[in-house]
Structures are given as C-alpha cells and as structure tokens.
C-alpha cells in the first residue's frame, strides 16, 4: 500500500513562549488539493513551513511520501538529518511564497533555470530548454528575458510557480500565493494553479480565496489558535460549518 503524500503527527512549534502549532494531526492523500484557511496568526503558514523544514518543529513528525522530514529515527530517538539529505527532501517539495521571492538579479528564464543548474546539475542548454517550456506552461514565454522588477506581481508569481515546478516536485506548498497581488491579477495565478491541480499535483494551499477552495479544493482545513478546528469537503464546510469558530471566521470572509 502506498503511503499518503503528507502525514503530520502531533506537530508542535513555538517561537519563544508563543505556541503557534499545538498538536497538528493531518493526513493528505496523493493528488489532493487541500486548502488551509483561518484567521491570521492561526499557524497556517507555520504549518506549511514545517512541512519542508524551513521551520524546525519542537515536537511531532512530518512524513512526506512516507519519508520522515528533517530527522532520522534510531532507537526511538530523532536526530537531525545531515544537510545533504535534508536538501534532497526539500528538492522534491515545491514552495511558492506570498511575496514571490524571485531572484532579482536573474531574468525570468534564469530564475526557472537556477534550481536545475545549482541543485540538479542539469547542463545549461537542457536547463534553458526545460525552463522555456515551463514559462510557456504558465503563459510567460514572451517574458523570459525580463527581470522580476519588470514584471507585474501576477507574472512574478507565475514565474515563481514555474521555478518550483522545474524541480519536478511531488508536492507543492502555496503560502498565500495571491495575498500580495492587486485584485485584477489574482485570477491569472489561480488559473495556473487550477491547471496544476488538474494535472494531478498534490497541493497544499494556504489561502483566503474561498472561491478557489470551493471550486478546486478537495479538502478544506480550518485552523485557529494553532489547532485544526474542523476539516472536510470544502462545499460542506463552507455551506454548513459545524464549529462556532469556523462560523465566526466564515461570516467575516464570505
């Protein structure tokens, strides 16, 4: 039996005294699109960042594709993985950030090539070809030689998605991918994400776009104060939330 794509077990994370994640248990099957919603400060982004070990949790475990992330287990004890092994794990988990974080000194094409060259060691010519294909896929073939500063927010975010896809990830994490965009640019990014979902990619999307969650999401997770309050099919939760806190939140954003 193949393992689920993501499994979190009693994940805890605190910054100093502030407990941001207070025991998260979550299982995500392959090919699912999971939307994580909740008020700001509820721990959504931290949860996402724990999945590729950009944040080191204080306790609990994360498995991606059956593999324990960030640690090796020996005799019931967890030890941090050597850097090289952690990098291999990150390679297969794509991440898209709220503020894009494209490399400003490289063109769109070079941004997409960067991981192929610097991490996978692909020869420049092949990397260029693959990057051009990916830019075409996100509809930016004609912007290949623009620098990030010369692109709109929506275009930058599409380049960032192409940059992640270049690593051929098995899982994609989106951390509020449309929150920094002007309203009229949100659609083009969501369209790219819809295509990606249709291609069978497993996606975890922290978002405030309830429309996207309803249309594209297979599963909705509502978080508040570091715990998962409620989860289930998006249409059911959005139409009939079971929990008071979910109801209170949805009444504000819908």
């Amino acid at each position: 039996m193949t393992p689920p794509m993501v499994q979190c077990r009693s994940l805890r994370k605190s910054f100093g005294r502030l407990e941001v994640l207070r025991g998260i248990d979550l299982t995500i099957e392959r090919g699912r699109v999971v939307c994580v919603v909740g008020p700001s400060g509820s721990g959504k982004s931290t949860l996402l960042r724990c999945l590729n070990h950009l944040e080191e949790p204080q306790a609990g475990r994360v498995y991606v594709d059956g593999e324990l992330i960030g640690y090796s287990e020996r005799g019931g004890r967890l030890r941090p993985l050597p850097d090289a092994r952690l990098r291999r794990q990150r390679e297969s988990i794509g991440m898209v950030f709220q503020r894009f974080h494209l490399f400003p000194h490289r063109t769109a094409l070079e941004n997409v090539m960067e991981g192929l060259i610097a991490v996978k060691g692909v020869p420049t010519g092949d990397a260029r070809q693959r990057a051009a294909d990916l830019l075409d896929r996100v509809g930016l073939a004609d912007r290949a030689h623009h620098y990030p500063a010369q692109l709109s927010g929506g275009q930058q975010q599409r380049v960032a998605i192409a940059r992640s896809l270049a690593m051929s990830p098995k899982l994609m994490l989106f951390d509020e991918p449309t929150s920094a965009l002007d309203p009229e640019l949100v659609g083009e990014v969501l369209d790219v994400m819809k295509d990606l979902a249709a291609s069978g990619m497993t996606m975890i999307v922290v978002t405030h776009e309830m429309g996207f969650a309803r249309e594209v999401g297979d599963h909705l997770v509502f978080m508040d104060e570091g715990v998962i309050v409620e989860q289930g099919p998006p249409r059911e939760i959005l139409a009939a939330p079971q929990h008071d806190r979910t109801r209170a939140f949805l009444s504000k954003v819908l």
């Binding site: 990150r90 390679e91 794509g94 940059r163």
Partner: peptide, 26 residues
C-alpha cells in the same frame, strides 16, 4: 531580503551555493 535565502533553501540549495549564487551577487 531573508526571503531570498528561504526561496533558495526551498529549492534544495546548499548554504554555500545560496551564499555564492543568491546572496553575494545581490
């Protein structure tokens, strides 16, 4: 921007490469 290092780390780059290819040029 510290986000640059995070983006590079998320791609799976080593600390040395992040410094050499991402941080120092900027």
């Amino acid at each position: 921007d510290p986000g640059q290092q995070e983006a590079a780390a998320a791609l799976g780059m080593s600390r040395m490469k992040i410094m050499k290819r991402v941080v120092l040029p900027q």
